[in-house]
Write a protein that binds this DNA or RNA. Sequence first.
DNA 1: TTTTGAGTTGTTCGA
DNA 2: GTCGAACAACTCAAA
Length: 465
Amino acid sequence: MLVEAVRLGRPLVPVYIHAPAEAGDWPPGGASAWWLHHALHSLQAELAEQGLPLVICRGPSVTALQEIASELSSAGLTVATVLFSRQYEPAAAARDACIQKVLQDQGIKVKVFNASLLIEPELVRNRSGKPFRVFTPFWKHLRALPLETPVHISPSALLAPAKVPRSESIDSLGLLPQIAWDKSFPLHWDPTLAGAANALHTFVNDAVDSYREQRNVPGVEGTSRLSPYLHWGQLSPRQVWAAVHAAGEQDGGGGDTFLSEVAWREFACHLLQHFPDSPEHAMKPAFRTFPWQPDEAQLLAWQQGQTGYPLVDAGMRQLWQTGWMHNRVRMVVASFLVKHLLQPWQEGARWFWDTLVDADLASNTMGWQWVAGCGADAAPYFRIFNPVTQGEKFDPQGDYVRRFVPQLARMPAQFIHQPWLAPQEMLVAAGVTLGKNYPLPIIDHRAGRERALAALAENKLRQRN
DNA sequence: TTTTGAGTTGTTCGA
DNA sequence: GTCGAACAACTCAAA
């Protein structure tokens, strides 16, 4: 988009329109709004260094753009072209199509660019000419495609406008939360453009090598933590792809594993494009009769990290405190909600949507449908994570649990993932009183597992009748 | 068109 | 302790 702006050689008016009402049922959640607030400030500062404004408006988007055009026009300036990056969420895509039509009818050119994907969904087809619904063939196909390499442009090549349209302040958008639950976010995130560059550099130089082994260990920083930057467009997947290739990490090993994760992000976005109702509805029709057992109290215990399973609770508390959760733990907590507690996956997706700084409609939807077993290329429903086994396997010393569940900080590793089995004197020595400062399990693992499998069997009967 | 093999990340049970 | 099979069938991709 900026390359095109430079090519056009005309003055540029960068605009951000805040229009949460145009996101359909999925306006940005609380954690997203926090990130957006800081990202906008960062962008504004970066543009200001080049003498460029960042004009902030409120939606409706069409009206905002028309007002800018008429304001410039009364100053004797003509808006010739509007450039924007394509969005793929169903509501945003419909909105953008509408904007495009209205502007073009007024004689304004519109150009839409792909900034957030490696390749447009329409360009990826299997041999039958259909979109892929299974990841592995998608991945094999994608990695063989010639992908555009990102072009670096010098921001100083952008021309400032002679007149700056009226703008609101970023702060007036009210993006920061009313209650200060975001207070510890800055300890974990730098939501600026500099932060994005830094995160990519650090990952490619220090961590990508050991990514394949370390990414599953929640107690260490073995993942890239690039997801929010990718979601917000502070990094593009092509830039990330190129950086991994430039480091010579793409063949086998950590880089390869990492790029396949970037491809999962891509796959999710393509799926959302082809299945626009998937955020609300199971892709496998059989799951539409699944006997979920919605229960406010169970959902709340999960949200608050009060299930009595240390790995689950650590994950949910990490999410609340930092706006992010380790990927391995996301699978464990999601499986627990959907299978042990039989809560509808949509409830989990909603909570993640509101609390993750990297909340992304496509990835979130695909991830939850995957865990619930109702997605396009999903884990089988009978695959039920055992939260204790997962803890012992991936957090053997309990480092992760100790960090986010300080009540268990002094528990010996042997029982940290199942404190209810610890001898009484060990609990006393560790300062743990089950049911007081740390809950007893809200459901027995074996019983939960059996109930989940029974629900699956019941659904199968419903399907037959 | 038909057939065949495969499909992100697990757990449990019994030999 | 280790290992393979069962856990469900089903749909997709490709030959």
